[in-house]
Structures are given as C-alpha cells and as structure tokens.
C-alpha cells in the first residue's frame, strides 16, 4: 500500500484566517494518519523592484499566521514546524520547499474570490495544481464554527 498522503503535509498559508481554516480542515486527516505538518508562508520578493510591503512587516505577519496555526493544533500530538520562505514566484517556492523537506503532499484550502481578485493577487492555487510534481490536495473550507 502506498504511504499516506498525510505522512508529512506541507501547508502554505497566506493570512491568519487562511492558517486557521486550513489547519482546521487538515486536522482530522493528520490525526488519523499520525503525520507531520510543516506550515510555511512565502514572502513574495519583487526581485529588483521595490517590494509592496517591507520584508520585516511581512515577517511579523507570517509569525501571526504561525501562531494561529499552532493554536489550532495545540491539543493534538502534532506540533507543526513553521518556516518563512522567500521567492519571486510563490508557487515555485512552495514546490521547492516541499521537495526539500520531503513532504508527501502540498495541502491548502482554496481562498475563493472572483476572477478580478485572482488576476490581481496571482492565482497561486492554480499554479500549484498545474506545476507541482508532488500530490496537491485542496481541502474544502470547514463550515462548522
């Protein structure tokens, strides 16, 4: 039998809200697979142009996401590993990280939004699905509160 897809999930998060809903959706799967979780936030760099926000400010923001993610998993056996990554292409950086840490799958919850919003923010979800050579799992957002 192939190994569980949740042996070591790489979870890219983009905001504290995203971290919360993704971890909540992911939690039951990780618990039943007794897997590991690595949460990353990719700080997008402009690669030569001024960035849209200071790196330091976005690092603070990433720490907020990590704190939310750990809170979500606080009463389980799994303590998520957290890491900030930097790259000009968010999807590519996520996939590279997944290989580096030998992840079994990349897991995220889709963030919705209309076509216009996706155009502005860059559709990282789509790029992940189309570019990744590792399994990519999208979990539906949990609707219980």
């Amino acid at each position: 039998m192939p190994e569980s897809l949740f042996r070591h999930a790489l979870v890219p998060v983009a905001s504290p809200e995203d971290a919360e809903s993704t971890m909540r959706a992911l939690r039951p799967y990780v618990e039943s697979a007794e897997g590991d979780v690595t949460v990353i936030n990719v700080i997008e760099k402009a690669g030569g142009a001024p960035d849209k926000a200071s790196v330091e400010q976005r690092e603070d923001y990433a720490h907020k996401m990590f704190s939310v993610a750990r809170d979500e998993m606080a009463d389980t056996d799994c303590t998520p590993t957290t890491e900030i990554r930097y790259g000009t292409d968010v999807a590519e950086t996520i996939i590279e990280t997944a290989h580096e840490i030998n992840a079994s799958a990349i897991v995220f919850t889709p963030r919705g939004g209309n076509r216009w919003i996706r155009l502005l923010t860059g559709d990282v979800g789509l790029s992940l699905v189309s570019e990744s050579d590792l399994p990519v799992i999208t979990l539906p957002e949990p609707n219980d509160d």
Partner: peptide, 26 residues
C-alpha cells in the same frame, strides 16, 4: 514603510499598519 516602522516603535497606532489578508499590502 515609514508608517510601519513608527507603528512598530509604538509612536503611531498600529491600526494603520494592518496587512490586507488578501493582497498582503499595508
């Protein structure tokens, strides 16, 4: 960036420095 730095040092209300959850901009 100046606003952010002032907020970090508590010279300015941090409300101004909230990062947008979707666009990740201040």
């Amino acid at each position: 960036r100046v606003n952010f730095a002032m907020g970090r040092d508590k010279i300015l209300i941090n409300w101004l420095n909230e990062v947008h959850d979707r666009f990740r901009t201040p």
